[in-house]
Simulated assay, not measured.
Amino acid sequence: MERIIDFKTTCNDNEKTVEAFLKEHGFTHQVLVNLKKTNNGITRNGVWAYTNEKISAGDKISVHIVENCNSDNILPIKIPLDIAYEDDDLIVINKPAGMPAHPSMGNHDNSLANALMYYFNSQGLSFVFRCINRLDRDTTGLTIVAKHALASGILGKAVARRDIHRTYYAVCSGHTPDCGRIDAPIARKSDSAIERCVDFDKGEYAITDYTRLKYNPDKNLSLVQLKLLTGRTHQIRVHMKYIGFPLIGDFLYNPDYTYMDRQALHSGRLEFIHPVTGKKMDLISDIPSDMKSLFKLV
Rank of each mutant, 00 (worst) to 15 (best):
D59C: 03
D59N: 06
D59M: 02
K60R: 13
K60M: 05
K60Y: 01
K60G: 02
I61F: 07
H64D: 08
I65W: 02
V66L: 10
E67C: 04
N68Y: 10
C69D: 11
D72V: 08
D72L: 14
N73A: 12
N73H: 12
I74G: 06
I77H: 13
K78H: 15
I79A: 07
I79P: 09
P80D: 13
D82Y: 08
I83N: 12
Y85W: 14
E86S: 09
E86F: 08
D87W: 06
D87V: 10
D89L: 02
D89R: 02
I91L: 04
I91S: 08
N94I: 01
P100Y: 03
P100R: 01
A101N: 04
H102W: 14
H102S: 09
P103W: 09
S104R: 06
M105C: 11
G106V: 10
G106D: 14
N107W: 04
H108R: 12
H108Y: 15
N110H: 08
N110V: 10
A113Y: 02
A113P: 01
A115N: 09
A115G: 10
L116F: 12
L116P: 01
N121M: 15
S122Y: 06
S122G: 05
G124N: 14
G124A: 14
S126K: 09
V128R: 07
V128K: 12
F129S: 04
R130L: 05
R130P: 00
C131L: 14
I132Q: 12
R134N: 13
L135M: 12
D136K: 15
R137A: 09
D138M: 12
T139F: 05
T139P: 06
T140M: 09
T140R: 05
G141N: 02
L142M: 01
T143C: 01
T143Q: 01
I144E: 00
V145Q: 00
A146D: 00
K147E: 12
L150F: 03
A151H: 06
A151I: 01
G153N: 15
I154S: 02
G156K: 04
G156L: 04
G156T: 07
